[in-house]
């Protein structure tokens, strides 16, 4: 924050708390990304609720956003994705998702590199952005952080007899969701080893129904592993929260079991082998 510090001395910045002045080595969390794009897409996919929870460990970065107790979205970026990654123990802090999303988009559409610094409790998260091709331009953002409560852990039982797993090509699934009735209240997803293998139905207010069936032999199915029939209803508004992630995903994994809890993994397109994915847990509606 060398540069913001001078501005503070000139009296242009007033909030000293938002400036970090200690040496590099004292930071609890430092990370550098050469390309901001995938990270930015991931953050945008989670920007449906303001409270973002950041958890950093040696494995990587996890960002969690929850809506009520019904939807949880996680962005995972493994440590290997970062050009530089340094963390002391386990670091957690809360951030306003809208603000970090706007800050990451400051140089919209231009390839940028990013550095993140975090000093510890009560300190801001500092982002330094450098457009790759413009050496004379840079931006420093410091964003207020908050303490966070624990994150609910959702889990599907991997051993369950009814665990169904399907891998689908992202763009194809995005097309299907585009065609479904957007005004519908509820959406039913059925997975079955028998026909119809994969079925999405919408139920509208005036009993209008649309459905799409995908056979397991379809080109869009990359893996089909169903043991038993599962079927559950979800609120369409909650399903629609996944759309930004879906639009950016190259591959989607759909997992569910007899409890109806829906887990979706969205693999983000990334040039390298790096692992960036967004995960959603969506609670089913109670069957009446």
């Amino acid at each position: 924050m060398q540069h913001s510090k001078t501005l503070y001395e000139k009296g242009l910045l007033k909030n000293l708390k938002m400036l970090t002045q200690r040496q590099y080595s004292n930071f609890k969390f430092v990370a550098r990304l050469d390309q901001i794009k995938t990270f930015y897409t991931g953050i945008k996919a989670l920007n449906f609720e303001n409270n973002g929870k950041f958890q950093v460990s040696e494995d990587g970065l996890r960002v969690t956003v929850e809506e009520g107790n019904c939807v949880q979205a996680n962005l995972y970026i493994t440590a290997s994705c970062f050009a530089e990654f340094h963390v002391v123990d386990m670091v957690t802090f809360g951030l306003n998702m809208n603000i970090i999303s706007e800050c990451l988009g400051l140089f919209a559409g231009i390839p940028c590199s990013l550095k993140m610094f975090y000093k510890g409790d009560g300190a801001p998260l500092v982002l330094v952005l450098h457009p790759n091709e413009e050496a004379d331009i840079s931006a420093e953002c410091s964003i207020k952080t908050t303490n966070i409560d624990d994150v609910i852990d959702y889990n599907l039982d991997e051993e369950s007899r009814t665990l169904n797993v399907v891998f689908v090509r992202g763009p194809a699934l995005a097309n299907i969701f585009q065609e479904l009735n957007k005004a519908a209240d509820e959406l039913r997803i059925t997975l079955s080893p028998r026909q119809p293998h994969f079925k999405i139905e919408t139920l509208g207010v005036v009993k209008t129904e649309t459905f799409v069936e995908v056979a397991k032999t379809s080109d869009m199915i990359m893996l089909f592993n169903c043991r038993d029939t599962t079927s559950a209803c979800y609120r369409n508004t909650e399903m629609r929260l996944t759309h930004k992630a879906l639009a950016a995903a190259s591959k989607v994994a759909i997992k569910t079991d007899s409890s109806g809890l829906l887990e979706m993994h969205f693999m983000m397109q990334s040039e390298e082998q790096a692992e960036v994915y967004v995960q959603f847990y969506i609670m089913p509606l109670a069957e009446i």
Partner: peptide, 19 residues
Amino acid sequence: MNLVAETDMATITTRYQNL
């Protein structure tokens, strides 16, 4: 040239050099 924005939630400074 610096563009500076400051609020309770965030401080953003953008710097252009060698203009």
